[in-house]
């Protein structure tokens, strides 16, 4: 089922392309509402991103349209959605990227739908952190004397940790994961990259045996089918497969 909202008078005068945005609509809060696709027409301007286009639709055409943006600069991970079939951040997607001007937007699958393009990644990511206990486990962390020189760290190690600490929990890897579809409790790449980060960090005193308790089954590292959806669709270009392969080998050696 599809309906078209006509662009307002005045649009088109700038001479830009007319983009067709086909957007998934459904508000679970509204009794009787049905999932459907709705098409909006927007006149393209130079440098237009999906952030700009979606806000223009909300302000000028349809104030009920739900979506999430926070930083609109590609660093907070709020605006993951499926854009012409692939999960990505809407804020850093330029409309110029689509030669035919047809853009289909769907909410990220695998997360609870809030409404239209908005999904609840927060609840999911908190559960991941709790499951892997995603914080530094150190017997002496609380006793650390903050008046004294900090513990030294190898500069290369600090850089390596930062490299995989760059995950923004946008959820694109989870939405792109084949295993996640088959195994609802599969930890997924976001969980693995966090584990890899703490595994690498010498401040975290957990042993491989400890990690095995968290990762050592088919909902963990052994469930990954290596379809590479996470790596292909990570907006931060994190090295998911290398980290997953590393963890799998480590865990295979434990028992």
């Amino acid at each position: 089922m599809s309906e078209t909202v006509q662009s307002q008078a005045g649009l088109g005068r700038g001479g830009g392309r007319h983009l067709q945005l086909h957007i998934f609509r459904y508000n679970p809060q509204l009794p009787g509402d049905q999932p459907r696709m709705q098409t909006y027409e927007v006149e393209e301007r130079e440098g237009m991103t999906l952030f700009i286009a979606l806000n223009e639709i909300r302000e000028q055409q349809d104030p009920s349209l739900q979506f999430d943006f926070v930083c609109r600069a590609g660093i907070c991970g709020s605006c993951g959605m499926v854009i012409n079939g692939r999960p990505d951040l809407a804020c850093h997607t330029l409309t110029a990227k689509f030669p035919d001007g047809e853009i289909t937007l769907l909410p990220l699958p695998a997360f609870e739908l809030i409404g239209d393009l908005s999904v609840d990644t927060g609840k999911f990511m908190r559960a991941v952190s709790e499951r892997i206990e995603g914080w530094i486990h150190s017997a002496d962390a609380e006793g650390v004397d903050i008046n004294r020189l900090e513990a030294r760290m190898d500069p290369d190690l600090a850089e390596q940790i930062y490299e995989i600490d760059r995950c923004i929990e946008c959820g694109c890897c989870i939405s792109a994961c084949g295993t996640k579809r088959m195994r609802p409790d599969f930890l997924g790449a976001v969980g693995f990259i966090h584990v890899a980060r703490f595994h690498l960090d010498t401040r975290d005193q957990r042993s491989d045996d400890d990690w095995y308790e968290i990762l050592g089954d088919d909902d963990g590292i052994f469930g990954c089918m290596s379809l590479l959806g996470c790596e292909d669709n990570c907006p931060k270009n994190l090295p998911h497969q290398t980290q997953i392969a590393f963890l799998r080998r480590k865990m295979a050696l434990v028992r």
Binding site: I146, N147, R148, E150, M153, P155, I161, Y162, D165, F198
Partner: peptide, 19 residues
């Protein structure tokens, strides 16, 4: 401020280090 940054180091911030 120096105490705050050292506490954050203990909590896991991978501060860039002197080489």
């Amino acid at each position: 401020a120096p105490k705050a940054i050292r506490q954050l180091a203990a909590w896991g911030v991978p501060w860039s280090r002197v080489r």
